[in-house]
Amino acid sequence: MKKYAPLTSYLQSQTADRITLSFKEITEILGAALPGSAVKHGVWWTNSPSSGRHNEAWLTAGWKTSNRNLKAQTIQFERIGISSQPKQQVRQAAPRSSFDPSMLTETDFAADCTVTLQLRWQRLGAVALVNHKLVFPEAPKQAGLYRLTVRLGNRTTVYVGEAVNLKRRFGNYRRPGNTQQTSLRLNALLIEAIGQGGAISVDIAYDNIGLSVGGKIVAADLADKAVRRMIEQAAIVAHGGVDVEMLNR
């Protein structure tokens, strides 16, 4: 691109293998201002070759960019094929240094991630104890989230979980297998709580879950375990502001 030809000429005239230029210096070399994307987004300085792009200004001259620092408004150029560290530094042990947040730069794919979640619990019913066996209220055979609230005296404990099949998960708690450690633990805890006069309520959420990513509303696919786990963890964190004990911890 003709606009960036002065930068090509400047790099071709250099004798050093590495140079660092400020954005202001590059503006003076070009005789024109850099676009806003060059100042705000590190990806503008990418070395990915593409015909007709501005980065041909340094790639065709045999240079590449490195050490982008948008905060300091500087960019380093180095000749293609040159090691990113001088040889004498490679042989030496890396010096100890403290973390400097001012040296952080944007990555080529620095997409922001804003997630908003709205979860509304629905009361399914209560857990009973019949002939020393737990009896759960009838649940749908669908993927979703569930919450067990145990009230015993002045103490309230909560367990939040996720399942690909809510009905089957409650069946596991009723008759846990020998290797199902979580189910065995909760089975014993629930039986003990009811035996001591406690009350256990069951809430579920399997539809009408509001989810938006980056400001765009998306379907909360509860068949996807990753989605269920994300919502489960959000629900656990949300209970952190309530005066209860989380059985998940």
Rank of each mutant, 00 (worst) to 15 (best):
M1H: 15
K3M: 14
Y10K: 14
L11I: 15
L11D: 12
S13H: 08
Q14H: 06
Q14W: 06
T15M: 08
F23S: 03
E28C: 04
I29E: 02
G31F: 12
A32G: 05
P35N: 07
G36M: 09
S37W: 10
V39W: 13
V39M: 12
G42H: 07
W44K: 00
W44G: 00
W44P: 00
W44T: 00
W45Y: 07
T46N: 15
T46Y: 04
S51L: 14
R53C: 11
R53A: 15
H54N: 14
G62I: 06
T65M: 04
T65P: 02
S66G: 10
S66H: 09
N67R: 12
N67A: 12
K71I: 12
T74A: 06
T74H: 08
T74L: 05
I75N: 00
I75A: 01
I75Q: 01
I75T: 01
Q76R: 15
F77R: 03
E78A: 04
S83D: 15
S83W: 02
S84F: 04
S84I: 07
K87Y: 07
K87M: 10
Q88N: 12
Q89D: 13
Q89E: 14
R91I: 14
Q92L: 15
Q92E: 14
A94E: 13
A94C: 10
R96L: 14
F99Q: 03
D100K: 08
E106S: 10
T107G: 11
C113G: 00
L117I: 15
Q118K: 12
R120L: 08
R120E: 10
W121P: 02
Q122D: 10
V127H: 05
A128H: 13
K133A: 10
F136P: 01
F136G: 00
E138G: 05
K141C: 07
K141N: 10
Q142P: 01
A143K: 06
L145Q: 01
L145K: 00
L145C: 01
V150A: 01
R151N: 12
L152W: 07
R155V: 11
T156V: 13
Y159G: 01
N165V: 04
N165P: 03
L166W: 01
L166K: 00
R169C: 09
G171N: 05
Y173M: 13
R174T: 14
Q180R: 05
L184Y: 02
L186D: 04
A188P: 02
L189F: 11
L189A: 13
I194H: 02
I194Q: 04
Q196A: 11
G198N: 09
S201G: 09
S201H: 06
D203P: 00
D203K: 07
A205E: 03
Y206V: 03
D207M: 03
D207R: 11
N208D: 13
I209G: 01
I209A: 06
L211A: 02
L211N: 01
V213T: 06
V213D: 02
G214N: 13
G215F: 07
K216L: 10
I217L: 10
I217Y: 07
A220V: 07
A220Q: 01
A220D: 03
A220H: 02
L222K: 00
A223Q: 10
D224S: 12
A226G: 08
A226Y: 08
M230H: 08
A234T: 11
I236C: 09
V237I: 14
D243V: 07
E245F: 08
E245D: 10
M246D: 02
L247S: 06
N248Q: 08
N248C: 09
